[in-house]
């Protein structure tokens, strides 16, 4: 029964992949090797598509693998399998947090966790900067910086932080406008 197998394979992935979407990748490679539902080469293509479509990458991957394996029902079942462990675990954690909301130690733990969490987001941001605004393969010098990208980033920064009417715009406006700039200027 392919649907049941798909569900359990993705349930396992959802249960053991800790730390976000890309953490599912080793599990999917293993799945390709064991089940033969898809090849590793197909998986590489699916990752490229998942990164260039809206939505969380891990969810996109599960949908794509499920669809490739067993059509639209497969897509739905693989995705549900992937998210089931998260939902169950978070519901338990949320209930626990509610019960201990006024606990001194829990509050102190969050006092330390919040700056750490912010730092991890900042680190992810620096990762995108290194991919985008500089050319790490070049030696340090004028060529090292990706000037058109830096110019676009500067414009977006000014418009999102300091120019009053544009500052209030929805972030998606800037994302779509930047996509257009990317296509027109051939980034």
């Amino acid at each position: 029964m392919i649907y049941l197998q798909l569900f359990f394979e993705f349930l396992k992935t959802g249960l053991f992949a800790v730390g976000g979407g890309l953490a599912t990748l080793p599990f999917l490679n293993d799945m390709a090797d064991r089940t033969g539902w898809f090849t590793r080469a197909q998986l590489a293509d699916m990752l490229a598509v998942s990164e260039s479509t809206p939505g969380p990458i891990g969810v996109n991957m599960a949908t794509y693998v499920g669809f490739t394996t067993a059509g639209i029902p497969g897509a739905v079942i693989a995705t549900l399998g992937l998210i089931t462990p998260s939902v169950v675990i978070i519901l338990i954690v949320a209930a626990f947090l509610r019960a201990f909301r006024n606990n001194k130690y829990v509050n102190s733990a969050f006092y330390g966790l919040r700056p750490a969490s912010t730092a991890m987001v900042a680190a992810a941001g620096i990762g995108v900067v290194l991919l985008t605004l500089v050319r790490t393969e070049q030696p340090f010098g004028l060529e090292f910086f990706n000037w058109p990208a830096i110019a676009l980033a500067a414009v977006v920064l000014v418009l999102t932080r300091w120019v009053k009417p544009t500052r209030e715009l929805h972030p998606i406006v800037f994302i779509l406008a930047s996509a257009v700039v990317g296509v027109v200027l051939r980034f």
Partner: peptide, 24 residues
């Protein structure tokens, strides 16, 4: 889909914007 040239250019533009949005 992701091998189309204009899709790659669009995402290169989006990544620049995402840098700034994450900074904010």
């Amino acid at each position: 889909f992701s091998h189309l040239e204009w899709v790659q250019h669009a995402f290169a533009g989006i990544r620049v914007c995402v840098c700034v949005l994450i900074f904010n």
